[in-house]
Design a protein around this nucleic acid. Structure first.
Length: 257
DNA sequence: CGGCGTGTTCAGAA
DNA sequence: CTTCTGAACACGCC
């Protein structure tokens, strides 16, 4: 699932527990801890207090009262949720942070990413590779990021250009802005590029309270899984193809060329 | 058994 | 240097 709206939801889950002390860290699957042994990972975090968490793109930055910083990346199947003590465990729960009165559980089926501890210089290096966060980027910065003659879909998916957009969000934004995903980003008219910026903000604002890209029938996302899917706007048959290496859905009538 | 997928990274090629 | 492709990671679903 996780794109910006999902990760922002996980950030809010964690923010509920700002100031609480981590009593115990249970690493149930060492495969999701990157760059440290389970033992060192747990020992480093136990006893620390969570501070207000931050987010950049799809990274959740869980600061505590000491270094190093705990980073979460949710890959395609990760999540973070709060559970009362003693709630039955699930098999894909990989890491459990015990806090007073309950626990935070990091769940991840496919384990494509995971958790890591970074010192300040490591965090700087990581963030330095990412473009501005999609919620905070200026229109000017986005337009500059669209230089180069790549497909617009590839440019918006590139975390070095803008951080936080994934496959579903990009398809949704391009559909609303009426731009075909294979258009060259540097061949867009000014008003088209501005439409992308505007629709991106609208989609994000609507998606964040839901904590996901909502599969509403009035959204492209609500149709993309169905075969013979129809455009919610014009009822044309939606097209499906691999663009920029990912499954892409668009309306050939609304999104010309 | 084969193909697919809301993500990232890397090698290799053009 | 830029851009693109395919593979790899891991695992359930169809």
């Amino acid at each position: 699932m996780p794109e910006l709206p999902d990760v922002e939801g996980f950030r809010r889950v964690l923010a509920q527990h700002t100031g609480k002390r981590i009593r115990r860290v249970l690493v149930k699957d060492a495969g999701v801890v990157r760059g440290a042994s389970s033992r060192r990972f747990a020992a480093t975090l136990q006893g620390r207090r969570f501070r207000e968490p931050d987010r950049h793109g799809k990274w959740l930055i869980a600061r505590t009262d000491a270094d190093p910083v705990l980073l979460f990346h949710f890959g395609m199947t990760g999540s973070l949720s709060w559970h009362a003590p003693g709630e039955p465990a699930r098999r894909d729960e990989r890491i459990i942070f015990s806090l007073p009165k309950g626990e935070l559980r990091y769940r991840d089926l496919r384990k494509l990413q995971g958790l890591r501890l970074l010192r300040q210089d490591g965090l700087k290096k990581l963030l330095g590779k990412l473009g501005p966060d999609a919620l905070r980027i200026s229109q000017k910065a986005l337009l500059e990021g669209l230089a180069g003659r790549r497909q617009i879909k590839a440019a918006l998916m590139d975390q070095r250009v803008i951080a936080g957009l994934g496959n579903l969000l990009v398809d949704e934004i391009l559909w609303r802005a009426r731009i075909a995903p294979a258009r060259k980003s540097n061949a867009l008219e000014q008003r088209e590029a501005k439409a992308i910026y505007r629709e991106m903000r609208r989609v994000l604002r609507a998606a964040i309270p839901t904590g996901r890209v909502p599969p509403r029938p009035s959204w492209l996302t609500g149709r993309r899984d169905r075969q013979e899917a129809k455009c919610p706007r014009c009822a044309s048959k939606l097209r499906r193809a691999t663009i920029a290496g990912r499954t892409t859905v668009w309306c050939p009538r609304c999104q010309r060329r």
